[in-house]
């Protein structure tokens, strides 16, 4: 871990000033990812700006029927919030499926968006990693690749995005609000995270001087919604595959569908191709399987993660079948 300064911001403007004024500064929320990465000497900020006391932890119902979630709301509060539980159950389910109670009490919504991969080679400072050290190579691609992505990978990087919440947010067309001293902008969540391409070290569109202030959800899609996670033990583990789905069926036909995948993509994966195949199709297992296959058609496997392709298809089918 490097030596660094710790400063605390009491309001948003102070936070935005600190991030620009302090050299190589990073925002500190719950610390559940950043502190660990700093201890691993992967993140090396010279200054850490603690933003946990900023008044950005509210859930506000919006006039259009949507909801605005403050970026510093703790995961556990998000999952327990009555509006979220009743109107966006897949968000609550996604959050509760992740980490542990203690970690959910600490982790913030903004931090969840910013969390970095759990790739074993990213964490191994003796291994080549283009994300950690651009241009150094990727040891995962020729190595032990069981947890790596089958969608969105490049020759430089196949690291999986580990979030559960982001998968649900992707399915729900969430918007991320970013503020800097230059002003405020809004980015769809599906565009917030980047695929690795040639620059795996650039993971989001967040500028160096920007702070995530809120995540907004449009009114919820109709029908039943669910988040399901498949992993190596019953709890407290990252996804092998996860599925966020919202499905509405009218007269045996899919009238509304949202689908997003976790554990299989280099970013939270909105399954547009599956959605296109399903909308208007009969709500049968055949349709579900065809749609899943369509989404995974471009999946590229590495020696140890091939099973994820079939597992993703099976999970999609199982989730949709269980909802219809």
């Amino acid at each position: 871990m490097r030596t660094f300064s710790y400063v605390r911001a009491d309001d948003v403007d102070a936070a935005l000033r600190a991030i620009t004024d302090e050299p190589n500064a990073k925002f500190l929320g719950g610390g559940t990812n950043l502190v660990d990465l700093m201890r691993e000497d992967i993140e090396r900020p010279d200054t850490v700006v603690d933003i946990t006391r900023l008044p950005l932890a509210e859930v506000e119902e919006l006039p259009d029927g949507g909801v605005r979630i403050g970026a510093l709301l703790r995961n556990s509060h998000l999952a327990a919030h009555p509006v979220i539980r009743s109107r966006y159950p897949m968000v609550a389910q996604a959050v509760l499926s992740g980490a542990s109670g203690q970690l959910r009490n600490m982790a913030t919504v903004g931090g969840n968006l910013m969390q970095r991969t759990r790739c074993l080679y990213f964490y191994d400072d003796a291994a080549a990693c283009n994300k950690r050290e651009p241009g150094s190579g990727c040891a995962a691609i020729g190595g032990f690749s069981r947890s790596h992505a089958v969608l969105g990978a490049s020759a430089s990087c196949a690291a999986t995005h580990p979030s559960d919440l982001c998968v649900a947010l992707a399915a729900l067309d969430a918007i991320v609000e970013l503020r800097s001293s230059r002003g405020t902008r809004r980015v769809p969540l599906v565009d917030f995270h980047r695929m690795p391409g040639d620059t795996p070290e650039i993971e989001t569109v967040l500028a160096d001087d920007e702070l995530i202030t809120a995540v907004e959800l449009p009114p919820p899609p109709s029908g039943v919604s669910r988040y399901r996670k498949v992993r190596d033990r019953a709890s407290y583990a990252f996804a092998l595959v996860s599925v966020a789905a919202a499905l509405d069926v009218q007269d045996g036909v899919v009238s509304s569908i949202r689908l997003a995948l976790g554990g299989v993509g280099t970013k939270p994966w909105r399954a547009y191709q599956a959605e296109r195949a399903l909308l208007g199709a009969p709500a049968t297992e055949e349709s579900f399987r065809a749609a899943a296959r369509a989404e995974l058609a471009d999946a590229v496997s590495l020696p140890h993660n091939e099973f994820k392709i079939r597992l993703a298809e099976s999970t999609i089918v199982a989730v949709l079948r269980g909802m219809s």
């Binding site: 710790y6 605390r8 610390g31 603690d50 556990s76 203690q102 009490n105 600490m106």
Partner: peptide, 15 residues
């Protein structure tokens, strides 16, 4: 009053 993992709480945050 909330259970957390103390190992990931940076010292400055408990002021």
């Amino acid at each position: 009053d909330t259970p957390v993992c103390a190992c990931l709480v940076a010292a400055g945050q408990v002021q």
